[in-house]
Amino acid sequence: MTTRSWLTHSRTAAVLLPAIGLILALALWWLATIVFSIDSYLLPDPGDVLVTFLDQPGYLLKETGVSLVETLEGFLLAIVVGVPVALLIVRSVIVERLLYPLLLGINAIPKIAIAPLLVVWFGFGQWPKVLMVLLVCFFPIVISTASGMKSTPVELVELLKSLNASKTQEFFKLRLRYAMPQIFTGLKVAISLAVIGSVIAEFVGATSGLGYVITQSGASADTSLAFAAITLLSIMAILLFYALVLLEHLLLPWAQETR
């Protein structure tokens, strides 16, 4: 095996390379703080951030948990609402024409502009955060599901017709299965946005969560704490993304090669 094919194909390399990328980024960050001798209240070095985290790991992990739950709830809700909407769009051109501009319009609104409204409507609890996550995830899930469902090759549809398959069979045995790789693409986009959505919602009206930690640390100029929270957010986003990648590998082994 050549080095290049090892780097692109082996499983070890698949885990090792992203880790090296992260470590390089950390090293550069650290180097920058030393070379340009940046004050730690402006840009703390990774060591400061780690110390801050180790000062109160329980507290920070608890807040991470709050954000994680909001993110996951909103994400799952977006799947539960988004997939049926996509199905309606696929089944009926009328629904598609009715809904598309609406979806586009909603998606184009800067979410930070709605965050205060959600607080006014739904209070300070979990709901406005979950709904915010739903809003940001909804569009990519609907679009990817709908386009996935439309991508079924005609010869496969014709095959099922020639076998006298019912509409339900055509849907479950063919269209949905065929759409799965594209649905996963949408889910991966959505999960990254979901983390952003929950933090935005926490900026506005929250008493917990990583977004809340970040606003609080800003108020007290505690940059190290802000960075610790941001780092936890990144780690959460990365883990969620790779969890989806893993799930895709397990559920759709056929899709890896045909891509």
């Binding site: 090759p153 010869e155 496969l156 014709e158 095959l159 099922l160 076998l163 006298n164 398959a165 069979q169 045995k173 063919l174 299965r177 759709l252 056929w254 899709a255 045909t258």
Partner: peptide
Amino acid sequence: FQRPALLPWRSVVSNVMLPVEIS
């Protein structure tokens, strides 16, 4: 058909069994 029209997620034998399963 001109093209094999196999379902890519099904094994060879379960592709062959598709008509039985559908009916």
